[in-house]
Design a protein around this nucleic acid. Structure first.
Lengths: 128, 128
DNA sequence: ATAAAGGTTCCAGTCACGGGAGGGTCAAGC
DNA sequence: GCTTGACCCTCCCGTGACTGGAACCTTTAT
């Protein structure tokens, strides 16, 4: 398969697929014309990668997960640890964003939003 | 004030303050020795900037907010619009993360996390 | 006199790609 | 055979908001 078809099948942009090759995630064969020639297995790895990225795993985590995926003798505890770490990280991000959201929505709610210059948002940002 | 003191007062790393000068956010005076010499006003701007960044505003939004802050004839509606846009963006990020969190926590909960290789997390990532 | 602490500039790296230039290849229609 | 357009290639730069480090200068304390 050429990169265009793989892109359509996986939902990953061709640019991204080339990038994943750059960083050693897949190593598709090459035709005589220099075109990448993807096997089913290559495509499957890209699907795996796309899903893992969609769940917020970093590229490095994906490398670990892929190695575990291909290791028939893995311990599920190793996978769970990586996933748990990611989950903790996601929770931290959510908490950060919710703290921001709390302050900001409070300020927005108290701003008249009319033609007058008085604004609690700016007052808060500029308080000494 | 030298950069070190401003850094201590504002909580911003000196590196960050230099960066903010680079992008034209503050333009501290310079002493004969080439050292930056910050005024109270410079420091106040940096505090403002630090707070706005802490609320998730982008640098470009901060530029807008700062201009409004210094414009005595502003309309609070202009400020509110920027804040509202940021709030919407924050909500979107929270929703994205929560969607990730939902799927991932479900998978983590169903993974034995022991020495056996069977793992619903990998199964899900690799499903055809 | 010397050493530590603080300041300076400049360059490179981060993360995970995306945009675009400049060019080669392939299949179809005339 | 020729052109057109879709596809593919590599290479390099840009993103946002910094952070790290090298190489060097100035101030302060001992």
């Amino acid at each position: 398969m050429n990169i265009g078809e793989v892109s359509k099948n996986t939902g990953l942009p061709a640019k991204t697929i080339r990038y994943y090759e750059d960083i050693g995630f897949v190593t598709p064969a090459r035709g005589d014309n220099g075109y990448r020639s993807f096997s089913e297995k290559d495509q499957h790895k890209l699907v795996f990668l796309g899903r893992a990225r969609g769940l917020g795993f970093s590229i490095e985590d994906c490398r670990t997960l892929m190695a575990l995926y291909e290791d028939q003798g893995r311990a599920s505890a190793d996978v769970k640890r990586v996933a748990q770490k990611n989950l903790t990280e996601i929770d931290r991000k959510i908490a950060d964003l919710q703290a921001m959201r709390g302050t900001l929505s409070h300020l927005v709610a108290h701003c008249a939003g009319d033609g007058r210059p008085d604004c609690p948002i700016l007052e808060d940002l500029g308080r000494v």
